[in-house]
Nucleic acid binder design. Structure first.
Lengths: 194, 194
DNA sequence: AGATGTTGTTAATCTAGTTTAACCTCCTTT
DNA sequence: AAAGGAGGTTAAACTAGATTAACAACATCT
């Protein structure tokens, strides 16, 4: 079953008994989105924390001039949501849109709160997951402050070769905080003369 | 006692019994640093997660050219550490240095792991704290991608008026990702003509 | 009182990255 | 096969912000 992927992922950080596994399974909804569909839309309340079983999604913010800014990507075994909206149940700042047909395992806010009560170990699980996400987020800030666009692109390719292959370059440019034209120039330099 | 500040802060998110309060207290060390002293140094393992009781500290990264980049500030009721180093117990990427005489409540890695076992509710507490920190970190990324330096400075002043008063401007410039000279220009514009 | 260090300002010159616009290459649809 | 659309490239003109350098205003120390 598709939920195996999630259970395996959880078991990397905490141990669940058979009974706990079935409790988790009852509180999770499997859902598939088509390419282009939205898991979350700016302005709506983010209803789910979604674990990606297969496929790929982008989280992005649309500013007042209408420009998109890429907050993060999510591929297999990643989590995606507008976490700020999910935890406060206030309207979302970000959109999450599928770049491919994407299958996810979803926890609603209510389900998750119930799960925390029934299986307190899950607090630990999500603490660890979010701790790692926070550390990665801070690293990205530091890289944006201290590196040139070319260096950031080089690191991105090393760190996420799978994403680099899979998503259009103009989204990577947005993630790096540069225009697609400039990324194109940087790529040309990297391939030829460095 | 100084630890009251920490306990009050914890109680905003979870309830602790008297017994649990005394367990927490036993695992916390109160320590005072002088202005200029380091709570964490780049290259050392980060031994503590520190809750600021009073004072002010900066977390910064020194790049290969020797330039400092401000990762975050911490004032009263904030937490500070190199979290990546703390959780993995690997050498730290960042420095945490006190900008004033600073009193902190510290959890060692070992103490904290013991506390998680003795008081599982603390997993919830730290999950919530870190969730909020992560959301704030992502917002900062988005602002850095989508706003000009002037807008970022205006928001910083609104969001952290206390910090703005307290720390030198060149550190704020570094936090915003600009030079102190450019911040000076932005400030001149904000005060006069906008 | 003078010297030295820390913080902040102003101004000229320079550059990393943006903007605008044209064009190219694949796909997909009709 | 023609027509669109999505993704990518190139190049010229432009700008937000960096760099360099000089100086001013305070503290603090001797």
């Amino acid at each position: 079953m598709e939920i195996e992927s999630l259970l395996k992922y959880i078991s990397r950080h905490i141990d669940l008994s058979e009974q706990e596994v079935s409790i988790v399974s009852e509180h999770v909804k499997i859902r598939e989105y088509l390419k282009g569909q939205f898991i979350v839309q700016q302005g709506d309340v983010c209803k789910y924390e979604s674990y990606v079983i297969s496929g790929c999604a982008k989280t992005f913010f649309v500013d007042q001039e209408g420009n998109e800014h890429l907050v993060m990507f999510a591929i297999e075994n990643w989590w995606t949501a507008d976490l700020g909206s999910f935890i406060t149940q206030q309207p979302a700042d970000y959109n999450v849109q599928c770049l491919e047909k994407t299958k996810v395992a979803q926890f609603s806010h209510e389900s998750l709160e119930q799960l925390y009560v029934k299986i307190p170990k899950l607090e630990r699980f999500f603490r660890i997951i979010i701790q790692n996400a926070f550390v990665a987020s801070q690293k990205r800030i530091v890289r944006n402050l201290s590196l040139t666009a070319k260096e950031r692109y080089r690191i991105f390719r090393e760190q996420y070769p799978d994403i680099e292959q899979r998503v259009p370059q103009y989204l990577i440019a947005s993630y790096l905080g540069i225009t697609k034209q400039f990324l194109s120039k940087v790529r040309a330099e990297l391939l030829t003369g460095n």
